[in-house]
Each structure stands twice: as structure tokens, then as C-alpha cells.
Write a protein that binds this DNA or RNA. Sequence first.
DNA 1: CTCGATCTACCTACTAGTTGGTAGGTGACG
DNA 2: CGTCACCTACCAACTAGTAGGTAGATCGAG
Lengths: 202, 202
Amino acid sequence: MSMDKPSNTAPSNTADDILAAARSFIVASGYNGFSYADIAEVVGIRKASIHHHFPSKVDLVQTLVRRYLEDAVTGMTELERNVPDPPELLRTYAGFWAQCIEDASRPICVCALLASELPALPPEVAVEVRAYFQFLSGWLTRVFERGAEQGTLTIAAAPRAEAEAFMATVHGAMISARAYGDVLTFGMILAPTLQKLIPATD
Amino acid sequence: MSMDKPSNTAPSNTADDILAAARSFIVASGYNGFSYADIAEVVGIRKASIHHHFPSKVDLVQTLVRRYLEDAVTGMTELERNVPDPPELLRTYAGFWAQCIEDASRPICVCALLASELPALPPEVAVEVRAYFQFLSGWLTRVFERGAEQGTLTIAAAPRAEAEAFMATVHGAMISARAYGDVLTFGMILAPTLQKLIPATD
DNA sequence: CTCGATCTACCTACTAGTTGGTAGGTGACG
DNA sequence: CGTCACCTACCAACTAGTAGGTAGATCGAG
């Protein structure tokens, strides 16, 4: 199997290209909205070659979502180190997605989209999507707990409930932006949401 | 398989059966998540017969979403006549969906799901989905306007923004409930959301 | 240094099954 | 009679996935 060091023989980025293509298809139309043929065309290889990197579609999407979660974990960890203030943390998180939607680089969260069609997902993928929600909800819960302790966030219910509500609003705002075809909708929705959570200071 | 005849003189309800089957498939897995063969099996007719009622898949889903919107319009109008109080209106709306999710009868809003995969939808369907969002947002905006005038709703931003935020939270909460596989999640999310909007009366 | 074994990344060609959709026929009924 | 609702029997295109082959890089042994 693989005891080799990937340090020198790195240039095979085809697997990453496949994952990137798959992600762009998934955020456009979900798990059933793309085929190996679609990916083959944009990556520039033959359909069968995809199976060399990802034996089945389940493997491909499972890898994709797992990596998506890993990126979220590292991203949130880094964000928290740079920006320790709970209100600023929420603002930065919301601002990140506002930016992603406005420049169309990531018009919606992969896991939010996949969760909406979760009953139809292969179980291997479903479990990864669920893990993403649990991680994000846990992270937000800790932010709200800290904000409540410090008095820097105004919360009316348990931190867990506030975190789930905040996450739901973010995901719903992505969907609304998509429904209206208006990238500014996301920011319009998050503004009052953040305003209610952050005591007026200025 | 049996040729049981609809001896009751009712008009052909096959079209409605097809629409009902399509809806249950769509809420499970989206536009690309079902086929004419799937519908034929649960309705108990042959695949080709569906084309007699709905010439194409686009016709079928377009009819479905249009009727979904019509039902929403009549439902909201009736609701507003019975329950004129803005806070109670929001509570009833949220409670309706909480009930639908808990008894699994409508585990998610058809249009919220379709909106998430909107770029992949046929334009005829996309326009109906957009119309649903516009109607619901408009209705909620009027509720928030009235609540703000009366002082029965505590809003921090423009009624339109509050309405969009509320709608987004409802849709996001549906997705979270689905992601966690926990029907009580929806209610947990809506509780603090409503609490913030409705001034304490006790 | 060279020979061959092995591995990687890709290919052509194919399979079995599914997709939405069509053509044309049949029996019931007013 | 014609219309309606449904049928059988198709179709071309597409689905994920498989079989087997090839060019080139790598590597260890003689």
C-alpha cells in the first residue's frame, strides 16, 4: 500500500482537480446533479480515469465532504486564534460567507446543500455531512458561551439553541440569496441577525 | 398490478396521485432525485401513462410548485383571517412547520429544497420557486410591518430585512433538523427566534 | 549502466441498467 | 363515433462501473 512520502512525487494534482470539479457541480445541483462524464469533461481526462482516483462516486463525494470538514476545522481554529472576540468572530464568519457568495466563488455551503437532500445520500456521505453540522454547531456554541460569560453577546436562550439558530439563519440566507438570484440578500439577512446578538457599542 | 376500477364516480385523481408521489420524492431528494419509473411504481400505473397527464418532467414539477404556491397563498390568507395578531401569526406559522416535521408529513419545504439546487433547475421551475419566495417574503414583511406599528413585534431593522431573516431561519432550521435526523431541532431553533421578536408579556 | 519488474496514470471499449420520452394500440364510456 | 386513460413496446442518450491495455517513470539486482 502506501508508506511512501508524498513530498517529492507531488505534481499529480488530478485528484484535486477532480475534487474541485465535483465540488463546483455539487454546489450547483447536489449529489445527483452531476456525473463522471461531467467531471471528465472539465478536468480533461476520460471518464474511466476518474475511477482510478476514486473507485466509486461515493468515495469521491465522501472524500470531498471529509476534506471540506477538515478545512472548516482548521479554518475555524485559525480564525479563533486571530480573532478571539466573540462578536467579531460571528461577524467574520458571516462576512466570510457574504464574500464567498458575492464573488460567486462558493455560492452555498456544500454541507448545507447536501443536508437538504440527506435522505437520498449514500450513508457514507450522510455521516460526513452530519459531522460537519455537529462540528459547526459545537464551535458556535462555544463562541456563544464565551460571549455570554463576557457579556459581549446578548443571548436570550441557551448557547446551544442560539448557536443552532445562528447557523440555521446563515444556511437559510444562502438559500434565499440563491432563490432571489441576488448576492446581496445574504448580507441583508445577516445584518439584523448580528445586530440583535451584539450589544450596541457605537 | 390489478385492474381495480375506480368505481366511485370521482374524476381522475391519478394526476393528483402523481403530483403527491412527485412531491414526496422531491422533498426526499430534489429534482434529480426521482424518475418517472419511481412515480409509476408508487402510483400503480405504467411509466408511459404519466406522460399522458404531464407530457414532460418539467410540466410535472412546474405544476407541482405552482400548486404549492397557490396552496400557500390560500393558507396564509385564511390564517391571517383567523389569527390577526402578528406575534400569534408567526407562532402559528412556525408551529405549522414544527408539526409537519415532527409527524414527518412534510419534513421540509418543497421550495426551500428546490431553491438550494436552483442553478440546475429548468427555468420554468426556477421561476415558480422564486415566486414562492417572493410571496412568502412579502407576506412576512406585511406581518412585521403591522407588528412594528402596533408594537407587538420587536424589530431592529426594516420589516423587509426582518422578514427575510425570519424566513431564512425557518428554512435553515428545516435543514438542520434533517441533518441531525432530529425532528425536535426545528422547534429548538425557532423558540429563541420567536422569543427575540415578541416582547415579554408575562 | 542496463535489464526487467513494478507502479502510476491514463486510455479505449464495453457492460448492464436507467433516464425522459415516443408511437401506436386497447378497452371503457358517453 | 370520439375521447379519455391507460397500456405494450420501443428508443436514444446517459448512468456508474469494469476489463484490459499502454506509455512512462521508478527502482533494485546483476
